[in-house]
């Protein structure tokens, strides 16, 4: 786990890390990767991939509208809004 990789990952996650934090996280990530490497040394050829540790399946919802508009509440809780919209920094030039 080198510095560059940590920077890339933190950028992708939009996390700003100072120097001390970065060093600590680099170590943490290294430990995690070593642990995963250890797991991967196991032979799992005959084991089906497990996408969820709960051995259950999803329950499905009927397609009927039960949700009501809470527009005012939602908009008033955002950093910036007008009557109708959430306002954000310009995302294109």
């Amino acid at each position: 786990m080198d510095n560059k990789t940590v920077e890339t990952i933190s950028y992708l996650a939009r996390l700003q890390l100072d120097k001390d934090k970065k060093e600590k996280i680099t170590k943490d990530l290294e430990n995690i990767i070593n642990f995963v490497d250890e797991l991967q040394s196991l032979d799992t050829k005959d084991v089906a991939p497990l996408s969820n540790p709960l051995e259950k399946v999803a329950s499905k919802r009927e397609d009927s509208i039960t949700s009501k508009s809470r527009k005012e509440a939602f908009l008033s809780n955002s950093p910036e809004s007008d009557q109708d919209y959430f306002i954000v920094p310009k995302v294109v030039e």
Binding site: E80, D82, D84, Y85, F86, I87, V88, P89, K90, V91, V92
Partner: peptide, 11 residues
Amino acid sequence: HDAYPDKSVID
């Protein structure tokens, strides 16, 4: 993107 000169809005 055209509702405000320097902001975008989201629906």
